[in-house]
Measured scan of single mutants.
Amino acid sequence: QVALSRTQVCGILREELFQGDAFHQSDTHIFIIMGASGDLAKKKIYPTIWWLFRDGLLPENTFIVGYARSRLTVADIRKQSEPFFKATPEEKLKLEDFFARNSYVAGQYDDAASYQRLNSHMNALHLGSQANRLFYLALPPTVYEAVTKNIHESCMSQIGWNRIIVEKPFGRDLQSSDRLSNHISSLFREDQIYRIDHYLGKEMVQNLMVLRFANRIFGPIWNRDNIACVILTFKEPFGTEGRGGYFDEFGIIRDVMQNHLLQMLCLVAMEKPASTNSDDVRDEKVKVLKCISEVQANNVVLGQYVGNPDGEGEATKGYLDDPTVPRGSTTATFAAVVLYVENERWDGVPFILRCGKALNERKAEVRLQFHDVAGDIFHQQCKRNELVIRVQPNEAVYTKMMTKKPGMFFNPEESELDLTYGNRYKNVKLPDAYERLILDVFCGSQMHFVRSDELREAWRIFTPLLHQIELEKPKPIPYIYGSRGPTEADELMKRVGFQYEGTYKWVNPHKL
């Protein structure tokens, strides 16, 4: 086992960053958080920038500027975001240094004079007029057009580079997404736009490419001749908990499936790229999406959770019991969808996408189930092999396979070949997804960000279904809070070829 401390991990990262040409360590950078008073800024962006600063992973002359409508001070920003920093008493001095680099400007999102004030403020910072500028839009999409237009007109660096990070949702359907994309691309070049999907920053999602293309053993079996089906799962054990009003506007397909799960599907299904260059990788992902037809209604199961009468606390409440959810809402909190990649490698292999709230566990994984062994000599005792990439929690890679049961006879039983990170790298604290992705933006690497043509294809696949749901308002199937979801989803999976045995229990190697 390799035991690495946080300091050692960050030392390795620093070495990698400083050796590259793309990370300008000594240049002045300004990180501007648009929507600095909001939840995302408070819980994710400010803490992430602090962790990067604490670990010495930001360029040395980096300033952080918050911008929002609320009249706040840096002290206010500190008060609301610091509880999420997880700072230790030993880091007190470092924390003071961090907040000394912070400033805040209040202004409207659609007022040109406010942006001119913001620009004057940035120019007044040390070497601010020639600094590289990175704008993070932690804002609702309704203000994107006004904000990007004003940034472009008043706040661009004339000497350094300018980059803009856009948070999902990128529209509600193909038409609104196209409108937003066309607007942003009329102001910024594609190499300046970073559409963030934080799932692409997760260690195991990034590991998929290495697993596939750096190991000879997987190449020959990664196709329709050997793989019976692919299941991509995202499960949350909690409901909307008072935030249903926002969720109800989008629903589970827009929230998770059309982005996170579809991105994971691309990494499983794509061909080997010409290189690890950002556009070479994204070219292959677009090719996969172009091979997927629009979702067919007979390959869809929609569910909505109801309270568990035997549960406790939140578990007793259904989705419609959330006071922020519109009365009688038919918005799905669970969806199972089957897609097919219609190309030579994957023809006929079902890709089953499942996601839901208020389920029995927290889990995100990719599961490849292989065909049955031909010419069975073990009297149907063999179960199908599976390769599982567990994204969260407890990152893991393992192969479910058959071995001989101890004893006199040739009785096979299920076991696993474990390729888990935790076994080799004991207690290594890896940077989280937002840390990686923000560092990628500083480096100018777009590999783990969504390109406009990729986004367009993703919406093309799901828009007809979303429009049909909005028009017909089908009643989702009720499922109990804390269950596996509607049984109809299991029946759909069985119908397209997935075999669920229920006889195997994964042993978490992190707890051995």
Score class of each variant (00 low, 15 high):
R254T: 06
V256I: 14
V256H: 00
V256Q: 02
M257C: 13
N259I: 04
H260W: 03
H260M: 03
L261S: 03
Q263W: 01
Q263L: 02
M264F: 05
L265D: 02
L265Y: 02
L265C: 10
A269S: 12
M270S: 08
E271L: 05
E271I: 01
E271S: 07
K272F: 06
P273I: 00
P273M: 06
P273T: 01
A274F: 11
N277K: 10
N277A: 12
N277G: 14
S278P: 13
D279N: 10
D279A: 10
V281C: 10
V281Q: 04
R282V: 02
D283Y: 05
D283G: 11
E284D: 08
K285M: 04
K285G: 01
V286A: 09
V288N: 03
L289I: 12
C291K: 14
I292H: 05
S293R: 15
S293V: 06
S293E: 11
S293D: 10
E294G: 13
E294K: 10
N298F: 10
N298R: 15
N299R: 11
G303T: 03
G303W: 05
Q304C: 07
Q304R: 08
Q304P: 01
Q304I: 01
V306A: 13
G307E: 10
G307Y: 08
D310C: 13
D310T: 13
E312N: 15
E312Q: 13
G313D: 15
E314P: 11
A315Y: 14
T316E: 14
T316N: 11
K317W: 09
P323A: 15
P323R: 15
R327W: 12
R327A: 15
G328F: 13
T330H: 14
T330N: 13
T331H: 07
A332N: 08
T333M: 00
T333D: 02
F334N: 03
V337Y: 05
V337G: 14
V337M: 09
V337F: 08
V341L: 12
V341W: 03
E342I: 10
E342F: 10
N343L: 05
R345N: 12
W346L: 00
G348I: 05
G348L: 00
V349P: 03
P350D: 00
P350L: 00
F351W: 06
I352Y: 06
R354F: 02
K357Y: 02
K357D: 03
A358C: 08
L359K: 00
L359W: 02
N360G: 11
N360R: 05
E361K: 05
E361V: 06
K363I: 06
A364S: 12
A364R: 02
E365S: 09
R367F: 04
R367V: 04
L368W: 04
F370I: 07
H371K: 15
V373Y: 06
A374R: 11
I377A: 06
H379D: 14
Q381N: 13
Q381F: 10
Q381W: 07
C382G: 13
R384H: 05
N385P: 04
N385E: 00
E386D: 00
E386H: 02
L387G: 01
V388T: 09
V388D: 01
I389K: 02
V391I: 13
Q392I: 03
P393Y: 03
Y398D: 03
Y398S: 03
T399I: 11
T399E: 07
K400E: 04
M401H: 12
M401E: 01
M402K: 06
M402V: 11
K404G: 02
K405E: 14
P406C: 15
G407V: 06
M408P: 06
F410P: 14
N411W: 06
E413A: 12
S415C: 10
E416Q: 05
E416D: 15
L419W: 04
T420K: 06
T420I: 08
G422Y: 13
N423R: 10
Y425K: 05
Y425H: 12
K426W: 09
V428I: 10
K429I: 14
K429V: 10
K429C: 14
K429T: 15
K429P: 14
L430D: 05
L430H: 09
L430V: 09
P431G: 12
Y434Q: 04
Y434M: 01
E435D: 08
R436L: 05
R436M: 01
I438E: 02
I438A: 04
I438Q: 04
L439A: 12
V441D: 03
V441Y: 00
V441I: 08
F442E: 03
G444W: 01
G444S: 10
S445W: 12
Q446K: 00
Q446I: 11
F449L: 04
S452M: 04
E454H: 04
L455C: 07
L455R: 07
R456M: 08
E457M: 09
E457C: 10
E457L: 09
W459P: 00
R460D: 05
T463R: 00
T463K: 00
T463Q: 06
H467A: 14
H467S: 13
I469Q: 13
I469A: 11
E470P: 05
E470Y: 09
K473R: 15
K473A: 10
P476Q: 03
P476K: 02
P476L: 06
I477E: 07
I477R: 14
P478L: 07
Y479T: 02
I480N: 12
Y481D: 02
G482F: 04
G482I: 03
S483P: 04
R484D: 01
G485F: 04
P486Y: 02
P486F: 03
T487E: 15
E488N: 09
A489R: 05
K494F: 13
Q499H: 10
E501K: 10
G502Q: 11
T503H: 10
Y504G: 06
K505L: 13
W506G: 04
V507W: 14
V507E: 15
